[in-house]
Design a protein around this nucleic acid. Structure first.
Length: 357
DNA sequence: AACTCGGGGAC
DNA sequence: GTCCCAGAGTT
């Protein structure tokens, strides 16, 4: 454990909390201390920027204003609200966690770290965030912002990409957290990381804790935190099929309940074929489709964190004897009722603009 | 500890 | 192009 200067810690927490109270942004989840509202915001904010979250948060709270409204909502409904936000298991886990609170905690979000972390989708960060922001409990909430700020202020040189490094920062915070105002202290750390102590070009001249910052005194603010690189994404080539039935309806397919984009809808897709014959063979093999499909002058490249999809588009009129499991024929107007990942929104937008549907 | 799981904005 | 974002679950 790093030996921390107690005088420096006192100045640090005082300066940080004062700065936060003066500079905090007016965000929709900062209107009260309702633990459910804090919970929803914290899950949405996982790996997601504030500006992206705001419209999703407001729509979500209109549809599910209380835990009882979310606990037993249809999966298609919660995925539709989350459509385009990414990491879709977050909303499924949020619902499971909320249902757990409704059924086993009498609707009261628990006040211990152990109980919080037992809830689906609530890990060390989110547990600390809810406990400190909703209940003013002195629990650390270590996210990427916090590790960047602490790495600089306390000259921590451990690789923040390593899972074990989070515990080092938590240990610092158990000493440094302002027990008189855990909420403002934790949110102040994150707000500082978002607005001043940024990854590149940190605004040290505007920083309220510049005097306490070891990195600044050493001129290392741009060199910290230490973070190892992650490996690059692999490319997967896919053929997507706009299949139209006798009633001018389009077949869409529900993805499996686990894995990438679980439970979302898409046009039927197969691994890219190397020839027209091979493609027709695959269509017959997978779906018993014998009609010819025709290539469209459209291609989309969609980048995930760890995968890149390159999608070609084919169109065909079909009359199916048996409709595959997980398929549904929908009219042009019905499409918007289903949750599609962004990659499919790109494909469908083209189909609609070109009048193919 | 390493991998999976989305999408977008800043540079 | 690269990085990273109010991370968690699985293996």
């Amino acid at each position: 454990m790093k030996n921390l200067n107690q005088h420096k810690i006192e100045s640090f927490k005082t300066n940080l909390v004062h700065w936060y109270e003066q500079h905090k942004r007016d965000l929709p989840w900062r209107k009260n201390q309702d633990p459910y509202q804090i919970w929803v915001s914290e899950v949405m904010l996982q790996q997601t920027r504030v500006d992206t979250v705001i419209p999703y948060y407001e729509r979500f709270m209109r549809l599910f204003p209380e835990m009882d409204d979310l606990a037993y909502a249809e999966e298609d409904a919660i995925l539709k609200v989350w459509e385009g936000l990414g990491y879709y298991s977050r909303v499924r886990n949020l619902q499971k966690g909320v249902r757990e609170v409704v059924e086993h905690y009498g609707g009261q979000v628990p006040k211990s770290r152990k109980e919080m972390e037992s809830l689906k989708g609530v890990g060390p960060y989110t547990a600390g965030a809810i406990l400190s922001i909703a209940y003013d409990l002195p629990e650390p909430a270590v996210d990427g912002n916090v590790m960047r700020v602490l790495s600089r202020v306390f000259h921590v040189t451990d690789d923040i990409a390593k899972p074990s490094t989070r515990k080092i920062h938590e240990a610092i915070l158990y000493e440094a957290i302002d027990k008189n105002n855990p909420s403002s202290f934790n949110q102040g750390l994150m707000e500082l990381g978002a607005l001043v102590c940024t990854p590149t070009s940190p605004g040290c001249l505007l920083c309220p804790v510049r005097e306490q910052c070891e990195a600044f005194s050493l001129g290392l603010q741009e060199a910290l935190p230490i973070k190892s690189k992650k490996k690059k994404a692999k490319t997967i080539h896919l053929d997507a099929f706009l299949l139209i039935d006798q009633d001018k309806r389009v077949y869409i397919e529900k993805r499996p309940s686990e894995g990438l984009l679980a439970g979302l809808w898409q046009l039927p897709m197969l691994p890219q074929a190397s020839s027209d014959d091979e493609r027709q063979e695959s269509l017959q093999q997978a779906y018993e489709i014998t009609e010819k499909v025709h290539k469209q002058p459209f291609h989309v490249k969609h980048v995930f964190s760890h995968i890149i999809w390159e999608i070609d588009l084919y169109i065909g009129d079909v009359s199916l004897l048996t409709v595959p499991e997980q398929w549904k024929a929908v009219s042009k107007e019905e499409i918007e009722g289903y949750a599609f990942p962004v990659s499919q929104q790109k494909v469908l937008s083209y189909c609609l603009e070109e009048g193919l549907i």
